[in-house]
Computed example of a mutant assay.
Amino acid sequence: MKKTIFVTLITAISFFIGFAFRAISTTANNKNEMKRVTGIGGIFFKCKDPKKVTEWYQKHLGLDTNPYGATFEWYERPDSTTKAQTQWTPFAETTKYFEPSDKDFMINYRVENLETLVEQLKKEGVTFVDSIETFDYGKFVHILDTEGNKIELWEPID
C-alpha cells in the first residue's frame, strides 16, 4: 500500500514539475518573440450613404460619431493607465480605399513596432499593397491575406 502511494506521489510530483518547467520555458520563449497584432484598431465597411448610416448608428445605437465615424476608447492594460482606441467607419460603396480587395470591409489591426513586423512579414512572403506611411496619429501599411482581403496594420502614436 505504501509503495503504491509513494509511486503515485512521485508521479504526481514529476507531472507538476514538468508542467511548471514547461510553463516557465514557454513564458521565457514568448518574451523573446515579437508581438504582432495587439488588438483591433478599426472596422471599416462600405455602404451606399455613409453619412446616413453614421446618423442612423448615432440615433439608434448611441454611437458618439465624428466626421470619421466613431471612436471607442478603452484601456490597453489592466492598470487602466494606457488608453487605446478602436475606430468604426462607414465608407462610400464606391471607395477605392479597400482595393485591390473586392470585399466590402477591411479590418485595421493595432500592432507594435511596425517596421520590424514588416521585415518579418516580407520574409514570410506576405503580399504588400503599399509601403509604410506615417501620420501624426500613427504608422500604416496595407497587406493582403490569402483570400485577397486588404488588411490595414497600424502602429498608433498614443
Rank of each mutant, 00 (worst) to 15 (best):
residue 92 A to E: 12
residue 65 T to I: 06
residue 22 R to C: 05
residue 1 M to I: 08
residue 29 N to C: 07
residue 71 T to G: 05
residue 65 T to E: 06
residue 6 F to A: 12
residue 126 V to T: 13
residue 8 T to D: 04
residue 123 K to W: 01
residue 104 D to E: 15
residue 95 T to K: 08
residue 27 T to M: 10
residue 141 V to N: 06
residue 21 F to Y: 15
residue 78 P to Y: 04
residue 114 L to R: 10
residue 1 M to S: 10
residue 54 T to Y: 09
residue 94 T to S: 15
residue 68 Y to G: 00
residue 46 K to G: 07
residue 140 F to V: 02
residue 86 T to Q: 02
residue 155 E to N: 04
residue 29 N to P: 04
residue 42 G to P: 07
residue 147 E to S: 14
residue 57 Y to V: 03
residue 79 D to G: 06
residue 80 S to H: 12
residue 15 F to C: 03
residue 106 M to H: 05
residue 75 Y to H: 11
residue 143 I to D: 08
residue 43 I to H: 08
residue 87 Q to M: 14
residue 24 I to A: 11
residue 100 P to W: 09
residue 118 V to C: 14
residue 144 L to R: 08
residue 91 F to E: 15
residue 109 Y to G: 06
residue 11 T to P: 00
residue 37 V to R: 07
residue 74 W to F: 15
residue 12 A to F: 15
residue 131 S to C: 00
residue 17 I to H: 03
residue 91 F to S: 06
residue 126 V to K: 09
residue 4 T to Q: 06
residue 70 A to C: 05
residue 70 A to V: 01
residue 18 G to H: 14
residue 91 F to H: 13
residue 5 I to G: 08
residue 20 A to M: 13
residue 21 F to P: 00
residue 11 T to M: 15
residue 109 Y to H: 12
residue 10 I to H: 02
residue 100 P to F: 09
residue 153 L to K: 10
residue 138 G to V: 02
residue 127 T to V: 09
residue 7 V to I: 15
residue 152 E to V: 01
residue 30 N to Q: 10
residue 18 G to R: 10
residue 154 W to M: 04
residue 69 G to N: 11
residue 49 D to T: 07
residue 146 T to F: 15
residue 99 E to F: 12
residue 96 K to H: 10
residue 104 D to Y: 05
residue 119 E to N: 11
residue 37 V to K: 01
residue 75 Y to A: 05
residue 16 F to N: 11
residue 1 M to A: 14
residue 83 K to D: 04
residue 154 W to L: 00
residue 57 Y to Q: 02
residue 152 E to G: 11
residue 5 I to V: 12
residue 133 E to N: 01
residue 109 Y to I: 06
residue 28 A to P: 00
residue 49 D to S: 11
residue 103 K to L: 12
residue 26 T to R: 13
residue 145 D to L: 07
residue 140 F to E: 12
residue 95 T to N: 07
residue 88 W to R: 01
residue 96 K to M: 08
residue 24 I to K: 14
residue 42 G to M: 07
residue 125 G to Y: 07
residue 89 T to C: 11
residue 81 T to N: 13
residue 104 D to K: 15
residue 147 E to M: 05
residue 107 I to D: 05
residue 77 R to C: 03
residue 32 N to Q: 09
residue 123 K to R: 04
residue 113 N to S: 14
residue 34 M to R: 13
residue 21 F to W: 12
residue 55 E to V: 08
residue 15 F to P: 00
residue 48 K to C: 03
residue 93 E to T: 13
residue 83 K to Y: 01
residue 63 L to Q: 02
residue 3 K to S: 15
residue 69 G to T: 09
residue 82 T to D: 09
residue 16 F to V: 13
residue 6 F to W: 06
residue 131 S to M: 04
residue 12 A to N: 03
residue 42 G to E: 09
